[in-house]
């Protein structure tokens, strides 16, 4: 079970991170404002990065096909999470959510 998770962990972490950032924008912004939303973004991103780094580290040494694929997916996931987070730095938060 844990191995299976490890193998698909990277894309799943990306998907969850993406969903949290997108979903929270409406919910958090309309109730608690942009500060709280910024905290959510930061927290979710750190958590996702932690998972991804863990996946990458624990599969880096593997030689089997599945491990190598999981490793590469981990790197892709890292790229994906960073790309997703980029707009949060550039676009003002909570604009147009009223």
């Amino acid at each position: 079970m844990f191995r299976t998770f490890l193998r698909l962990g990277a894309p799943l972490a990306w998907a969850l991170h993406f969903l949290v950032l997108y979903g929270a924008e409406f919910l958090v912004c309309s109730r608690w404002g942009s500060q709280a939303y910024a905290a959510v973004v930061a927290g979710a991103t750190l958590a996702a990065l932690a998972v991804l780094v863990f996946v990458v580290r624990s599969t880096a040494a593997g030689t089997g096909f599945v491990d190598r694929v999981a490793f590469a997916l981990g790197l892709m996931g890292l790229g994906g999470v960073l790309a997703t987070t980029m707009p949060a730095f550039m676009i003002p938060m909570c604009v147009g959510t009223a």
């Binding site: 993406f18 950032l21 997108y22 924008e25 409406f26 912004c29 790229g79 994906g80 790309a83 997703t84 980029m86 707009p87 949060a88 550039m90 676009i91 003002p92 938060m93 909570c94 604009v95 147009g96 959510t97």
Partner: peptide, 17 residues
């Protein structure tokens, strides 16, 4: 559709990825 700008940014980023 007039969604919040930041949401559009997330999807733009994913579309690039």
């Amino acid at each position: 559709t007039g969604l919040p700008a930041l949401s559009l940014g997330f999807f733009s980023a994913a579309s690039m990825a």
